Simulated assay, not measured.
Amino acid sequence: MEFRNLGGMKISAISYGNWLTHGSQVEEDTAVLCVQRALEEGITTFDTADVYANTAAETVLGKALAGQRREGLEIFTKVYWPTGPGQHNDHGLSRKHIMESIDASLRRLGTDYVDLYQAHRYDYETPLEETMEAFADVVRSGKAHYIGVSEWRAEEIRAAHALARELHIPLVSNQPQYNMLWRVIEAEVVPTCAELGIQQIVWSPIGQGALTGKYRPGEQPPAGSRATDDKGGAGMISRWMADDILERVQRLVPVAEQAGLSMAQMAIAWTLQNPNVSSAIIGASRPDQVSENVKAAGVVLEAEVMEAIDLALGEVVEADPAKTQSPAKRDF
């Protein structure tokens, strides 16, 4: 396993995340086996959120990591989206919600602290000063070592970084969607973060499975695949299911073969080529998927491979920075 810096902390270049799996798509026994395999493969960084499976994912991850040496792990979670009954204060980045949510997440994870506590989206209804002061209190109380954000725009990250400096707390990360097809962070977010010393922890490096090559234009998705599973992300992967995109993805097959990689491994390695990326988050519904995907760690794609990828995908790549967005209001 390769390890990279996130602030002053080292994290595994491949992280294990349980967004669409634990507590919903797979049974708990299988989820625990996937986490065990991740540990066996050298993954030490685990990402979750209170909203995943309406808190159940945190509980499953806590059980799966029980008994491990805590100092040898990096556990990340997030706050923003509604949890529990989803009443008026059960979401957002108010002081009330942050302070209550961190305690609930720690109970479910079975730990005294998380290594990274992340704002899952930007909250336009709460003053940023209130949010950052609450995060500062979380850090100073010892309940989190670092703070991060997820899917924030460049100007929002810059404003939060300035407040973090004033409050003397470490804002070290952004967690955006990033893959060969979805490059919206490259124009504005990445340059801003590089300037400020903030790194990316990217989710969906294989486009919810679209970049594995198993989905073919003009054909029905394979039985049991994510595109057929309403609990496992069918809604999210649907954006990549257009025939013009799938046809372009198929052009990547010989590129991966020539590089000696599976399509998934090449896709994950591609995200890790970006020097502003500290880690790529993988998910799994079976332990063997973990073992295959971790092989992307440490892989360096040659310049000609990177060029071939760009040529193959062409105009289906989405790079508009305006696509990075949070809900305008908490209407959920």
Rank of each mutant, 00 (worst) to 15 (best):
Ala308Tyr: 13
Glu125Lys: 01
Asp230Tyr: 05
Thr228Trp: 02
Met180Ser: 01
Glu318Phe: 10
Asp331Phe: 07
Pro222Arg: 07
His97Pro: 00
Glu188His: 12
Val202Met: 08
Thr44Tyr: 01
Pro205Ile: 11
Ile282Met: 02
Thr111Trp: 09
Asn276Arg: 02
Trp152Ser: 01
Ser15Met: 03
Asn179Ile: 01
Arg226Gln: 05
Leu39Asn: 08
Lys231Val: 14
Val35Tyr: 07
Ala119Phe: 05
Asp331Lys: 12
Gly224Gln: 08
Ser262Trp: 00
Ser173Trp: 00
Asn293Ala: 12
Phe46Asp: 06
Glu58Ala: 09
Ile98Phe: 03
Arg140Lys: 15
Tyr80Asp: 06
Gln25Phe: 10
Pro254Gly: 09
Gly197Gln: 07
Gly67Met: 13
Ala312Met: 13
Arg37Leu: 06
Gly209Ser: 04
Ala104Cys: 03
Lys143Ile: 07
Ser279Pro: 00
Val300Asn: 08
Ile75Trp: 07
Gly7Arg: 01
Leu211Arg: 10
Glu100Arg: 14
Val299Gly: 11
Ile11Asp: 08
Ile75Arg: 07
Trp81Thr: 11
Ser173Lys: 00
Trp270His: 04
Lys214Tyr: 02
Glu40Thr: 03
Gln250Lys: 14
Ser238Arg: 15
Asn293Met: 12
Gln220Val: 08
Glu186Asp: 04
Ala160Thr: 00
His91Gln: 08
Gly197Tyr: 05
Trp152Phe: 14
Leu171Tyr: 06
Cys193Tyr: 05
Glu133Asp: 09
Gln273His: 13
Lys143Asp: 11
His168Lys: 12
Gln175Val: 04
Ile245Pro: 11
Asp244Leu: 04
Gly314Tyr: 09
Lys96Ser: 08
Thr228Ser: 14
Val294Met: 08
Thr212Ala: 07
Gly92Asn: 05
Tyr16Gln: 10
Glu74Cys: 15
Leu39Asp: 03
Thr45Asp: 10
Glu186Lys: 11
His168Glu: 15
Glu156Ser: 05
Leu171Gly: 09
Val184Lys: 14
Ala164Arg: 02
Asn274Val: 02
Ala264Val: 12
Phe332Gly: 14
Leu163Pro: 04
Ala256Ile: 00
Ala194Leu: 12
Val290Lys: 04
Pro327Val: 06
Ala64Gly: 12
Tyr117Asp: 04
Gly17Arg: 09
Gln258Tyr: 03
Ser94Asp: 02
Ala312Lys: 14
Gly23Tyr: 02
Tyr16Ser: 00
Gly23His: 02
Lys78Gly: 03
Gly314Trp: 07
Pro275Cys: 04
Gln175His: 09
Glu302Gln: 15
Ile268Arg: 03
Lys231Tyr: 12
Asp29Pro: 03
Asn276Met: 04
Ala264Phe: 09
Phe135Ser: 01
Ala119Gln: 11
Ala264Cys: 13
Thr111Gly: 01
Ile98Lys: 00
Ser101Val: 07
Ala160Asp: 09
Gln87Cys: 03
Asn5Met: 08
His88Ser: 13
Ala144Met: 10
Tyr178His: 14
Met132Lys: 01
Pro217Gln: 11
Gln250Leu: 12
Leu252Arg: 12
Gly197Asp: 04
Thr48Glu: 03
Pro222Trp: 08
Asn293Trp: 06
Glu151Pro: 03
Ile245Trp: 06
Val51Ile: 14
Gly86Thr: 09
Gln258Gly: 05
Val32His: 14
Thr111Glu: 02
Leu6Met: 02
Phe46Leu: 05
Leu65Ser: 02
Gly8Glu: 15
Glu151Gln: 15
Gly67Val: 12
